[in-house]
Design a binder for these strands. Structure first.
Lengths: 340, 340
DNA sequence: ATGAAAGCGCTAACAG
DNA sequence: CTGTTAGCGCTTTCAT
């Protein structure tokens, strides 16, 4: 029970292994890296020893020498709303897919959440650390300009967020404006004439959703007001209740910036005794799992998160290979359920 | 608009910087590392140059030399149920807190999701990579034994999961058995006499919750059956519906292994026309944000995720410092809302 | 097909 | 207080 593993000699470095195998460190390096120019027998011997001792080459040393780390940085800038748990469900899901996607391509993932207000240098610091080969930024937050600046001098970066005419950084994201239009059109199609947008229009993704809704409202001649709320569920809850109280009876269609907000809104509407969709129609955004489980199930604008993750990684890999790449705009999809 | 940053000379290494400052690389290293034995004027000069050129020492090189990386590995083993999105909400929230907590202590976080079935060597590989100073395992999945094995020879590891009598690895987690007991007691206190446990009893955390419920059921003389389901929402949905159909009228209290499952169950109960809590009482586990928004709001067993993250990091830091540490068992808390 | 040797960028003795 | 020097563990010419 004491010595299951017969590791008589400690083999921590490629040199240790070389000594045992009776070859030079160089050969071991080549063998383990799968280079072709190694005698098959030698290679097998080396591999056997490596396996026996559970040896793995030190990635730090390898990285230093080859000037690449095999690690992709993923950074989530937290805007003013430091604990914006809300988009978290969305971001975290995206993160999960990213992890799988990067792994599939042999990369490791280094995660950082940063508070730009406390550390203006957040992006350069990450890039300059020497620890990552490239970076994926999840969400532009209120850092659009800083990201633009960095993009000018650093190629292997891709950003999840909104696409703005003429921007310089490579972005992957849903067509938020179109999504907003679809949402408003649905509300109107199901009878709403007095629309409200629920959410923070500060972040540009949300601003674009709002703008899209405005497009539709204007074109179809219905009213649309903005009901600003924070994004964290704890604060948003009361804020929504207050909004509903202030506009009692004057609103018959709500477009919530996210499903989380929509779900909160549903609760608030219920508490005021308003029926959905009969008194008030409601459309969310994201199509998180929760959208299927609310009462009534939420009509919402779907973002294809898996496709987003795939796109982010694919574009980044191409940039890592030296290519220039265009941004990727994904189509939103109206998911009709029962809230509108 | 073209040259905002006057970087006449490229300064990529500590040696470049040293040349400009007219000192030796060693001095630059000391100055930037904040060592005390550097002349204040020299230090300021060096810092100024570093700032001007946006210089940051290469962490790979530094790590290699100092034999520490400043990176903590966080690994999520995905058991049989590869896409166990369900606990994901929980795990991902924990991950968010971990990121903040590690950052606060000056560590970076390297994330890996692994499928142990496809890569038996997942844990050793991560540890042996030389990229991380220590590792946090999120969830024991079905890898308890492998983790035990590793714990014998590797100290800086802490695991989120269930504590088993006499285990050798350091774990942080909720007292699942107690949580299960509280859940069952609540169901019984609100009138249930025919209990069911909803979920997968494979993972030990869930097994412990079930065992706790059994303790209570036995002691109080009520029946308890297990209703096995997968953990991913897509499959669990139908499975729950089928269970309810099979046991129509024979169950009046359900303890769901997680809030996500509970929420799904709520939907299924509604579809069958069963009233909660009048016909069937329901208790969840986790106290995710969703628990507050279901209809009716979910009575559930709260896990303190933030405290968990804090505990994981604190214990890991102590182990990194060479200490031995005990496991940390957190108390669950019954949150009474309206489903039981 | 393999060995020897140089060095990736940084830090930590050891001298001064 | 600062310079010099010797590596950390690995990869990659350049020889052979």
């Amino acid at each position: 029970m004491s010595d299951t593993k017969p590791s008589r000699t400690v083999v921590r470095t490629i040199t240790d292994l070389a000594r045992i195998a009776g070859v030079s460190p160089g050969t071991v390096s080549r063998a383990l890296a799968g280079k072709s120019l190694v005698n098959t027998k030698t290679r097998e011997k080396i591999e056997a020893i490596a396996r026996e001792h559970g040896f793995r080459p030190n990635q730090m040393a390898s990285g230093l020498r080859r000037q690449k780390t095999g690690v992709i940085g993923v950074v989530i800038p937290l805007g003013h709303d430091t604990r914006q748990q809300i988009s978290d469900t969305f971001f975290m899901t995206l993160l999960g897919f990213l992890a799988d996607e990067l792994t599939a391509h042999g990369y490791d993932l280094m995660l950082r959440r940063v508070v730009p207000d406390e550390d203006a240098d957040w992006l350069d610091r990450f890039i300059g650390s020497g620890m990552i080969d490239g970076v994926i930024v999840i969400g532009q937050s209120d850092q659009f300009e800083r990201i633009e600046d960095v993009a000018d001098g650093y190629n292997p970066m891709v950003v999840w967020g909104n696409h703005n005419e003429g921007q310089r950084h490579c972005v992957v994201g849903t067509d938020n404006r179109l999504g907003g239009r679809l949402a408003a059109e649905r509300l109107i199609a199901t009878g709403a004439r007095h629309l409200a947008f629920l959410g923070d229009t500060g972040p540009m993704e949300f601003a674009a959703r709002f703008a899209g809704a405005q497009d539709a409202a204007r074109r179809l001649g219905v009213s649309l007001i903005a009901l600003p709320t924070h994004l964290s569920p704890d604060r948003a809850g009361e804020e929504i209740a207050r909004h509903l109280a202030a506009h009692a009876g004057a609103i018959d269609g709500i477009f919530a910036a996210t499903d989380t907000l929509a779900s909160l809104c549903l609760t608030a509407l219920r508490e005021r005794g308003l029926a959905v969709p009969d008194d008030v129609r409601l459309v969310g955004f994201d199509d998180l799992p929760i959208a299927r489980q609310t009462v009534p199930p939420l009509t919402t604008i779907r973002q294809d998160i898996a496709a987003g993750a795939r796109g982010l990684v694919q574009l980044l890999l191409r940039r890592l290979a030296g290519e220039e790449t265009e941004s990727l705009i994904l189509p939103p999809q109206l998911m009709i359920r029962q809230s509108a």
